[in-house]
Nucleic acid binder design. Structure first.
Ligand SMILES: [Mn+2]
Ligand SMILES: [Mn+2]
Ligand SMILES: [Mn+2]
Ligand SMILES: [Mn+2]
Lengths: 153, 153
DNA sequence: AAAACCTGTTTGACATATCAAACATCTACA
DNA sequence: TGTAGATGTTTGATATGTCAAACAGGTTTT
């Protein structure tokens, strides 16, 4: 009815772009942030051709910079986006695995699917919640323990 | 490194298909489940042309059936998928809004983005968790109340 | 009956994302 | 030094999803 669902389209980055950014961050880790097309492609499990084309778009949007050897590095904005995505993924995964007992592998898959889609503020609320719930607050510990029992009903 | 992230691609349905199925379900509610292209298009806020093309795909996959007046209705499989998506959305939204205090509108947007992506089992775990946490279990109530305080730190 | 409106489909365009294959260029190594 | 391998780009294909515009039928209004 409302067009709220079309907000889905209105994402900062697509899943593909999100993973390109994170890949550059990871691959470039030992090289001052600089990454090569080939290494990004290998990391992502897609062809060099695809990475080359995708980077065209990502460069245009100012999310990476390029040096004279055609290596790429996250721009300030690209880095901010990559870090936000990694943080949200970590929060979601921790919640799924440590709070509601989703198996590790499934938590990995589900958090991967969702990492770039949840809003910043939701990510923050979630992080606050797991921080509280996995703290040594007695009420939190008791609730979690009761939930474990509740689950095995 | 691993190709886990490509599992993203391996979804039962895309966001677009998910909303087409749910739209058919909603639009057809008062007509024995039968829906027309025009009404689906209006509901989704896209053109009739787009719906027409998308339905071609959705029919091929056996998710809807068509009658002699070109009306469509969810097949048994299509209905199962639509219901699973609606259930997951409700669970996510309730968690965001009622547990971690995400504002209604944001909870709506985030749950919409994610509804078709989270796995069945994760959805079930989440539902168990919110059922417990919003029950009258004293430990649950105390934890939630402590979390409210913790938030306003 | 005619005109206006509503419906569903098709076409051509565009955007994103992927592949394989061909190419040009570098690099390494024998 | 010459060949083999690695690298990056481009092209042509496929798939999904969207739009606007044109078209063909059907229904309603006048
Ligand atoms: Mn240099
Ligand atoms: Mn991911
Ligand atoms: Mn009939
Ligand atoms: Mn949605």
């Amino acid at each position: 009815m409302t067009d709220t669902w079309k907000e889905f389209e209105a994402n900062e980055v697509t899943h593909s772009v999100a993973h390109h950014l994170v890949a550059i961050h990871e691959v470039g880790r030992e090289y001052g942030g600089w990454a090569r097309v080939s290494d990004i492609a290998r990391w992502l499990g897609i062809t060099r051709g695809s990475v080359s084309i995708n980077l065209r778009n990502i460069k245009t949007r100012g999310l990476v910079i390029e040096d004279e050897h055609r290596q790429v590095k996250l721009s300030e904005e690209g880095l901010k986006i990559a870090q936000a995505i990694m943080a949200k993924k970590a929060a979601v995964k921790a919640f799924l695995r440590d709070v509601i007992n989703v198996p590790e592998e499934q938590a990995e898959i589900d958090s991967c699917k969702v990492e770039h889609l949840i809003s910043h503020s939701t990510g923050e609320n979630l992080l606050r919640f797991i921080t509280f719930l996995t703290s040594d607050n007695p009420a939190a510990r008791e609730a979690l323990s009761q939930f474990r029992k509740f689950e095995d009903r």
